[in-house]
Amino acid sequence: MTFSIVARCAETGQFGTAISSSSPAVAARCAFARAGVGAVASQNVTNPALGPLMLDALAAGQGAAGAVAAAVAAEAHPDYRQLLAVDSAGRTAIHSGAKALGIWTSAEGKDCASGGNLLANDAVPAAIVKGFEEASGALGDRLIAAMRAGLAAGGEAGPVHSAGLLIVDRQGWPYAELRCDWAPEACPIEDIARAWEAYAPQAEAYVTRALNPTDAPSYGVPGDE
């Protein structure tokens, strides 16, 4: 009931995840990233604890394959879990348990990996990877393009209702964390795309405001001079 991508920007060193599902608030449970370390997803019958576990393994130098293996080894029910990881070198790894739901599959590309379950067809993750690799611009732009490509290829077997975009840069907090937790009628991926379109031009300003408010640009609110 989910399709996602984890990715690294080789130019900036940013990491990001994008995800969508028919379930509510999918990004809150499934999407994880850490600056300088990597990005991971823990999905299908979700165990959110596996996200931080994989990031800790990446931080300890285990690499994407080692991080996914560590999560599988620590998990009591690995057959129900689908895990994705990308590390600081752009290497990727995926685990899809035998009891993943419906049509499930995955794909890996340059600096990215995609996986999904309860899919409309088994071509969706490959379309997501292709969408990411063929897109240009900021990491957020490429992640949105990837998710749109996955949806165009069929997406989930039914309509999706939630989506999320998470990007980390150099700081310990997210560079961008945009979520649509429930969209009963509209497309949550397009909701996230519109949110990114509004947020992206301001993202660097928000970092400056956090690190050095005296050097921050205008806040754009009444009374600001």
Rank of each mutant, 00 (worst) to 15 (best):
G109Y: 03
A100D: 15
V124M: 10
S88V: 02
A123H: 15
A107D: 10
L83W: 09
I94M: 02
S88T: 03
D122S: 12
A107I: 05
I94Y: 02
G97T: 02
H77D: 10
D111C: 07
I94H: 05
E108G: 15
A85P: 11
K99D: 09
D79G: 11
N121V: 01
N121Y: 01
S114Q: 02
D87H: 00
G90C: 00
I94V: 08
A127I: 10
H77W: 14
G90W: 00
Y80S: 15
I94F: 00
G102P: 08
I128D: 00
S88M: 01
V129C: 09
R81I: 13
A89M: 04
A127H: 07
A98E: 06
A85V: 08
Y80V: 13
K99L: 08
Y80H: 12
K130L: 11
A126G: 13
L83T: 13
T105Q: 12
L83D: 09
H77I: 10
E108C: 10
A126F: 11
G90T: 00
A127F: 05
I128M: 09
K130S: 08
I103V: 14
L101E: 14
A93D: 04
T92V: 04
E108H: 11
A107C: 05
A123S: 15
W104R: 13
A85H: 07
A100V: 12
V124F: 09
R91M: 06
D122V: 08
G115L: 05
G97K: 02
G97A: 02
L84E: 07
H95I: 02
K130W: 06
N117G: 03
A113S: 14
A93W: 04
N117T: 03
N117C: 07
S106I: 15
L119P: 00
G97L: 03
I128F: 02
G116Y: 04
G90N: 01
G102F: 07
A113C: 14
A89E: 08
I94L: 02
S106L: 10
W104H: 13
D87C: 00
L84W: 01
G102L: 10
I128H: 06
T92L: 00
S106M: 10
D87Y: 00
G109W: 05
D79L: 11
S88C: 03
V129E: 10
N117S: 05
S96I: 14
I103N: 10
Q82R: 07
E108A: 15
D122T: 09
S114W: 00
K99S: 11
A127E: 05
A100N: 13
P78L: 08
E108D: 13
S106W: 09
Q82D: 06
N121E: 01
L118V: 08
S96K: 10
L83Q: 12
W104I: 11
A127K: 06
N117Y: 03
A100W: 09
L101K: 15
S96H: 09
R91I: 06
P78Y: 04
A93F: 03
E108F: 09
R81N: 11
L118A: 07
A126W: 11
A89T: 13
T105I: 15
Q82P: 07
S88Q: 01
S88A: 06
A107K: 05
W104N: 12
L118Q: 08
S106C: 08
H95S: 02
G97E: 05
G102E: 07
A127N: 09
A123Y: 13
